[in-house]
Design a protein around this nucleic acid. Structure first.
Lengths: 143, 143
DNA sequence: TCGCCGTCATTGCGCTTGCAATGATCGCCC
DNA sequence: GGGCGATCATTGCAAGCGCAATGACGGCGA
């Protein structure tokens, strides 16, 4: 093999490994208490910050495929955490909102999420944390 | 909604979005030329650097589920890019190697990969690049 | 040498995924 | 006002996924 490719130095690979590891570890925290998937977590989290939103909103703002968002919302609805109505002004849209049970779940999940994030970032020296977030934003094309 | 959760400031989510975007963009580059999946890319890339490896090797060093690695190798074999033999010394193992066609594909893929990585990292100011890689390594638990 | 436990790769199975097609509704222009 | 292209959510379908079970094999102790 002349000069092979070093996969484990390849940034797309490294980012993928890191993101998968972090998602899996965080999921382990809420999966033992609640039972939902990453997509369901994202829908709940997005709903807790925005009022009534459509599937399209979730698709765009929670980075979920349209069908994935739709199915996650359907599962959450049958679990009683989310309510789904037709939007009053545009009947093509659905208006998704958290139920009382959904809000209760988020009340448990939010501290858990912040705790996990704090543990994760504690791996970095304090002076690196803000620059790291800035770099992530830059690579994501946010700035 | 009392104080909702800001999903787009949540580091696990941000890492997930970034990694997905990067993987998708890079995949777009090789998918138009070759046809393979992310798992197949990883198998090829790992094989180009290591000699004859087992499925277990790929599982551990390319961060692929055992069955995913096995099936990716099977697809690459029937595409003629990979050869699969029984290991001479331990017949439980398979010895995977690139065929001539596989090496030819990697000869095209490697510059493409490096070019993509360079474009990606060009989003960061030069003095940030080394620290960024260090931070990724730290969060991944490599150091 | 035999038996047993551990390791390896594959595969069966149910579930999820992504994509394209569908049906419903809207906005707009004629 | 009526029709037409665009947008929204859902769903059918084939492909891919993870997990557990399977079968093949190696290593080691008695």
């Amino acid at each position: 093999m002349p000069d092979g490719f070093e996969l484990d130095r390849f940034m797309p690979y490294r980012l993928s490994v890191l993101a998968a590891r972090v998602s899996r570890d965080f999921a382990a925290r809420y999966r033992e208490r609640f039972g939902f998937s990453n997509a369901e977590w994202r829908v709940l989290a997005h709903l807790s910050a925005s009022g009534a939103v459509s599937v399209r909103d979730i698709h765009l703002r929670a980075d979920l495929e349209k069908s994935k968002a739709s199915r996650a919302a359907a599962r959450l609805q049958s679990a009683g955490l989310v309510e789904k109505r037709a939007d009053a002004e545009d009947r093509r849209l659905v208006a998704l909102t958290l139920t009382a049970a959904g809000r209760a779940a988020m009340a448990e999940l939010i501290p858990l999420a912040h705790a996990y994030e704090a543990e994760l970032m504690a791996e970095l020296p304090p002076e690196d944390r803000a620059p790291f977030e800035r770099m992530i934003a830059r690579l994501t094309g946010e700035a």
